[in-house]
Design a protein around this nucleic acid. Sequence first.
DNA 1: AACACGTCCAACCGCAGTTAC
DNA 2: GGTAACTGCGGTTGGACGTGT
Length: 191
Amino acid sequence: MDRNKLCNSSQDAEVRKGPWTMEEDMILINYIANHGEGVWNTLAKSAGLKRTGKSCRLRWLNYLRPDVRRGNITAEEELLIVELHAKWGNRWSKIAKHLPGRTDNEIKNYWRTRIQKHIKQAENLQGQTSEVNDQASSSQASGMAEPMDVYSPPLYQRTMEPIQIPLPTPESNETYWSMEDIWSMQLFNGD
DNA sequence: AACACGTCCAACCGCAGTTAC
DNA sequence: GGTAACTGCGGTTGGACGTGT
């Protein structure tokens, strides 16, 4: 890396935060389409975005990348997430590598909001039933009983719903555009 | 109809590891 | 070898949206 150039990057006055606008998305997409991913901080500057390199990277990886899959996590993916989480714990990026098109952020959110909830429910259920025979099993429980051990797939039937990809509705999104919108525009532009 | 509450997800923050000087 | 800057990762937060009362 060229540190002489990089040293100046922290001196930029204003840095935008918060939700990305369609304009910013288009700038980032077009810039990466033309120049590749490269060094994020210099990319942000060169593209004329008032964002940090970090922010650009996150936006690109989690949302703008063409191979990012939108839509519900399938039952198969869910099972895989559960398996891999049992294996590796909260190594979301590692888990994400085994789920093509899914981002670590998406998997992390999914885990926190849905699976963890179901696990708690399952634990509660088990807690109730185990109260009956807790004396017998208490010696066994210490040192193990990871939450994953009580995971039960039938609880997650909600994700069996078909994936629904919303159609672009430009009139309803004045400022913030879905990935489908952006990429349909990309195709339109021929990039 | 209005409010309260819960859920979901995009984005930010801080830390650790890596790399270039 | 030390230092500074960058990248990548995991945790957390804030706001939008949906649902129940």
